[in-house]
């Protein structure tokens, strides 16, 4: 009958193997611990640097707070009409919200919307219509020869404090229409004395209504506007 026999290494060798295992484990543990410290150290220095960079800012961000690369406000498609008609859009949606940042000790600021210039127009490359003609749908006595007027209504918009920031003393502007040379900047949101500092706020639901002249040629029109915080 065969029997299996096991041959153990001598006791001295077992001890040696044990010592090696012990040392290896200690080394691995130390390395991992130091790696953890390194991560913390690197991120701590990054954190303090960011806090020092406090400047007033505004941006268009998505629901996660990431900056939107080409922000725009799309207007609903319309059909050619022999009469005047209105196009509507919403500035500040859940995916493209206006975010105001105030990481400073100054509590007063304003966000407003204006055309890229007082003589800017909607254009599809060939045809144009206005956004700030005081006569509304028809051409008035302004510099260009086209009619059209945009109304911005932030009065029903919603201001939300990000991460629990208070919205006290933060208010939306009133509904108004652009008139060249008279109303070139429409206030969307402003903070008055006593508003929170080192905070952020989102603005959504600003209604834009564009009065379009009768018989406006079909096309895909764009208008560049500036969103400013100061």
């Amino acid at each position: 009958m065969k029997t299996k026999t096991q041959t153990l290494p001598p006791p001295g060798q077992i001890k040696k193997i044990g010592r090696i295992i012990k040392k290896t484990l200690k080394l691995v543990t130390l390395v991992m611990f130091l790696a953890g410290l390194q991560v913390l150290a690197a991120d701590w220095s990054q954190l303090s640097q960011t806090i020092n960079d406090g400047t007033l800012a505004v941006d268009i961000v998505d629901s996660s707070g990431a900056s939107v690369s080409n922000p725009s406000v799309t207007f609903g498609a319309l059909t050619y009409s022999f009469d005047t008609q209105d196009g509507t859009g919403t500035l500040g949606t859940s995916d493209e919200r206006i975010r105001a940042y105030n990481p400073t000790s100054t509590d007063t600021w304003t966000v407003n919307l204006a055309g890229s210039s007082t003589t800017a127009t909607w254009s599809d490359g060939s045809h144009t219509y206005d956004f700030n003609d005081g006569s509304g749908y028809t051409d008035g006595s302004d510099a260009d020869s086209v009619g059209g007027q945009m109304t911005v209504d932030p009065s029903g918009a919603t201001i939300t404090g990000v991460s629990g920031c208070s919205t006290s003393n933060i208010s939306t502007g009133s509904s108004d229409s652009y008139v060249e040379g008279t109303t070139d900047n429409i206030d969307l949101m402003s903070a008055s004395s006593g508003a929170a500092t080192y905070c952020r706020w989102d603005l959504t639901g600003v209604n834009l209504t564009q009065g379009i002249p009768a018989g406006q040629s079909p096309g895909t029109y764009t208008l560049t506007m500036n969103l400013t915080i100061s």
Partner: peptide, 15 residues
């Protein structure tokens, strides 16, 4: 941007 749209540019003003 897929249709008629207002394109937005951001400005920061130091008073």
């Amino acid at each position: 941007v897929g249709g008629s749209a207002v394109k937005l540019t951001i400005r920061i003003g130091v008073r």
